[in-house]
Design a protein around this nucleic acid. Structure first.
Length: 860
RNA sequence: GCUCGAGUGGUGAAAUUGGCAAACACGCCAGACUUAGGAUCUGGUGCCUAACGGCCUGAGGGUUCGAGUCCCUCCUCGAGCACCA
């Protein structure tokens, strides 16, 4: 049974086999303890209204080739797909049209799915998941409640990034250079009360875990930099004339003798206290100005540093010197203790500042290069440092900290750049946060009476929030009431004052909660007569979760997508564990990939899953495909390639082959329509080696020449190795070499005809299925085992040795015995005419022989 | 500014990791078959030179019998970070 066309009609062939795979559930997969598992994961797409982008099939084809190959190698392969469907575009579409984003999302998903099926990925579609499906986000909300219970979710009123363009707050990770990661709108600092996840508690674990994963270096480095752990010391400086001390964090305690002033952030709590009357006015003014500055202005490097004196003095604990205390906005209140010890001799910023304001600059580290230009920021040997003179920096750091520690003037300390994860968004299209706010009195009364439903989810400290002078406490929704779904509305626009559109739906917002049972009744249908002491009035949390929430655990849901009793069926995770291979874009290096690692470790720590501590042990980023003009594809440039057009014109197999042939998988590469023609030609050539002009299957030779045998076996070997190494471009060129030589030899033999299709199948599955069926095979080539190669056929019987004179190639020498003695080889080599010509009459200085490859005569 | 990564024909790129640079493909040139060719097949195609030959992996230096590959300096492009003390 096969499509049966006469010519290579890719449309007919591809549609035929796609239907076949669907009907026979070829890619459906179950746990099978008799087989080793292999879990291939793609970063699931956001189903945008624009449909599949030409970049999508790059990663998906790569993972598909790997999945099909591993299946052929006998693994039980899981290769699922789903939709990361909460997100901005659907919501903005809803705001514009008034149509519920769920409707629009469903349409987009069906387009994406159809497009992906048309490219022929070996995906088990029965495991399809969608983050906006209540059966899915029920468990996202459940995980939130676990975080809540374990004290990792809290609300905090603090300066957050507010994006007016999106009318929502954003996480640190979503702000890039003062603009929003999505939409590229400017952001500003604003004080708002928000949900925050305590990712900082996992900072060390997230850092250490990176040493045990096989990830691209650059991505590891980005996460390491984002976590930003540094080791150093807190040094306590006595303030002259006050009891208080100023704590300054430094990574360079070895430079303590070079501290000639202190700088506090303008917001530092001690500033007001220590400022002398003479400087009061100027300090106040400076603090006001810097508060008005945006963060972007404050961190603008080009700007010269500014600051003012406080008039107060501190004592350098190392040498007892009196040093000035300044305030300056180059010191951040949010890092370390908001105060620094300034070492202008060995810190660029401090040097700039000291030079501008005429503060003393002392050298305390000797620059080994002898170039004693300050500031010298490297390590060296200590000078002008009393008893520590002569010590190298590295050693001095520990010794000085220990010395100051004896008198409680310092202590060892670490710091992190990582901040807690701002988790709430003022948007409609996200998972509602399953929390109800009730008055603090009601909350405390219930807990005191020991009659309350949320015992299981009681955080050690109530999460509270003050509003209009009343304090409210966060009540977790009863897990039995999950999912908490989005209420219908016709107004999806955020109010812009920090509240989500959900705040405008009173029928959903105001509820009565039975504090004993967890039962909830909308306030507008709550009748007074039911009222007893257990019912309290509450207001639902109106914020929703950020888009990253759903993608934090989706790889677990694929394992048992229909499980109703847990986020993942224990039996399924016991078998499938975590993905063996994960592929997706590099743009998620510090967003999704950091958040998901956090959640995974949390779920692991609380015993919800029993796997390794890292979710993604092997990670790969596919490169970006540029437009034909070598620039990023964009509508405005008009260089966008639509995968539908490509499939229509050349077929899915050609698209798959081409995207893999383009170049190394992880590189940025420009699209080329001419290149498409090349692989398309290759497919036609393959066809014509199997099928004659009348559409009949050709007959093959009984056997092949040694040379063809060698190439066929070498090809089987190389294609397998290249797939394992994700070097698909060279795998394809090897198949081209193989076909070219088969063509020259006048065709395949029976064995190689089948084997060639088996190695082609992961790359171009449709044509492979069709030709495989025409060879008389039943069932799918997907289930055919990967062919073995014969190493003895690959070893060449004769060896070619390059003969060089003074490193220049002069001749080739063919020998049959690789183990021939060196002297014999030299003798043979030197007797070659073209070699003798260059060696004659010259003094032989050296003879080199690299076994089996090269001879080099060095003369005069 | 700092930290990485990358620079190879007209183009996309290969190179067993120190051993014939340019595999494979695109494009181009010539030819064959064709009424026709934007189909197919065959051959050619790094640069200089009439030729012998010489020169070629961003530039310059170094190590080595031998360097695209290792080391140093510089240039260009890309990515990330950007006052984190």
């Amino acid at each position: 049974m096969y499509a049966g066309c006469k010519q290579y009609d890719f449309d007919q062939i591809e549609l035929f086999w796609q239907e076949f795979w669907d009907k026979s559930k070829t890619f459906s997969v179950q746990e099978d303890p008799s087989k080793e598992k292999y879990y291939v994961l793609d970063m699931f797409p956001y189903p945008s209204g624009a449909g599949l982008h030409i970049g999508h099939p790059e990663g998906y084809t790569a993972s598909d080739i790997l999945a099909r190959y591993k299946h052929a190698k006998g693994y039980n392969v899981l290769h699922p797909m789903g939709w990361d469907a909460f997100g901005l575009p659907a919501e903005q579409h809803a705001i514009k049209t008034g149509i519920n984003p769920a409707t629009n999302t469903a349409n987009n998903v069906s387009v994406f799915k159809k497009q992906m099926k048309r490219i022929g990925f070996a995906i088990d579609w029965e495991r399809e998941i969608n983050t906006t499906d209540p059966d899915y986000f029920k468990w996202t909300q459940w995980i939130f409640l676990q975080l809540f219970k374990h004290g990792l979710a809290y609300v905090d009123e603090c300066p957050v990034w507010w994006c007016e363009g999106l009318k929502s707050v954003l996480a640190n990770e979503e702000v890039i250079g003062g603009r929003s990661e999505r939409g590229n709108f400017p952001v500003i600092r604003k004080n708002l009360c928000q949900w925050v996840l305590r990712i900082t508690r996992y900072a060390d674990k997230l850092l250490e875990g990176l040493s045990n994963v096989d990830w691209p270096d650059s991505t590891k480095r980005q996460q390491i930099a984002w976590i930003g752990k540094s080791e150093g010391a807190n040094i306590f400086f006595k303030i002259d004339g006050y009891g208080e001390e100023i704590c300054a964090y430094t990574t360079r305690p070895d430079t303590i003798f070079g501290v000639t002033f202190l700088v506090l952030a303008p917001e530092h709590p001690l500033v007001e206290k220590i400022v002398t009357p003479k400087f009061k006015e100027s300090v106040k003014k400076y603090a006001e100005i810097s508060q008005k500055k945006s963060d972007l202005e404050r961190t603008d490097l080009a700007k010269t540093k500014t600051g003012v004196q406080t008039g107060a003095y501190a004592i350098n604990p190392a040498n007892g010197k009196r040093i000035e205390i300044w305030i300056a906005d180059y010191v951040l209140a949010s890092y370390g203790s908001g105060a620094i010890m300034a070492v202008p001799g060995h810190d660029k910023r401090d040097h700039d500042f000291a030079s501008k304001y005429g503060i003393a600059i002392t050298q305390v580290i000797d620059d080994a290069s002898g170039d004693n230009q300050l500031p010298y920021v490297g390590d060296g040997v200590l000078i002008n440092s009393g008893r520590f003179n002569g010590l190298p920096s590295e050693e001095a750091r520990g010794k000085i900290t220990s010395w100051l520690r004896e008198t409680k003037r310092a202590d060892f300390a670490q710091n992190y750049k990582l901040r807690d994860w701002l988790f709430s968004r003022q948007r409609y299209w996200g998972e509602p946060i399953p929390i109800i706010w009730i008055k603090e009195n009601d909350y405390r009364a219930a807990v005191a009476n020991d009659k309350f439903y949320f015992k299981e989810f009681l955080p050690s400290e109530p999460i509270s929030n003050g509003k209009d002078g009343i304090t409210y406490c966060a009540l977790p929704l009863c897990t039995a009431h999950l999912p908490l779904t989005l209420p219908p509305t016709d107004s999806y626009l955020p109010s812009g004052d920090g509240e989500s559109p959900l705040a405008k739906i009173p029928s959903w917002l105001d509820v009565y909660v039975n504090i004993e049972t967890g039962q909830i009744i909308p306030a507008d249908s709550f009748s007074g007569k039911d009222k007893n002491s257990s019912w309290v009035l509450g207001r639902r949390e109106t914020n929703t979760m950020p888009q990253w929430a759903g993608s934090c655990w989706y790889y677990l849901r694929y394992l048992s997508p229909h499980c109703e009793t847990a986020i993942v069926d224990p039996k399924a995770i016991d078998y499938w564990q975590t993905p063996d291979f994960y592929i997706g874009g590099a743009e998620h290096a510090v967003l999704h990939l950091l958040y998901a690692r956090f959640w995974h470790r949390f779920l692991f720590d609380i015993g919800v899953i029993e796997t390794g501590e890292e979710p993604f042990r092997k990670l790969f980023h596919q490169g970006i495909i540029l437009g034909e003009d070598g620039t990023k594809m964009s509508k405005s440039r008009g260089n966008v390639i639509n995968p539908d057009d490509v499939v229509r014109r050349y077929g899915a197999d050609a698209l798959r082959l081409y995207e893999m042939f383009l170049g190394p998988l992880d590189m940025m590469k420009p699209w080329s329509t001419k290149g498409m023609e090349g692989v398309s030609r290759f497919l036609k050539k393959i066809w014509s080696e199997y099928v004659d002009r009348d559409g009949n299957t050709k007959s093959f030779h009984d056997n092949l020449s040694d040379e063809c045998q060698r190439i066929v076996n070498e090809t089987i070997k190389k294609v397998g190795n290249d797939i394992e190494g994700l070097k698909f471009n060279t795998a394809i060129s090897q198949m081209m070499i193989c076909l070219n030589s088969i063509q020259k030899a006048g065709g395949f033999d029976n064995v190689s005809a089948g084997n060639f299709l088996k190695i082609l199948a992961p790359f171009a599955p449709h044509i492979s299925e069709e030709l495989w069926a025409r060879l008389g095979n039943n069932g799918s080539i997907y289930d055919a085992p990967w062919p073995e190669y014969d190493d003895s056929k690959i070893v060449a019987t004769s060896h070619k040795i390059i003969v060089q004179v003074n490193g220049k190639m002069r001749a080739e020498l063919i020998i049959n015995d690789v183990n021939m003695s060196e002297d014999a080889i030299f003798e043979l080599a030197i007797s070659i005419g073209n070699v003798r010509k260059y060696v004659a009459d010259k003094k032989m200085l050296k003879k080199v022989y690299a076994k089996g490859t090269v001879v080099n005569f060095v003369v005069e």
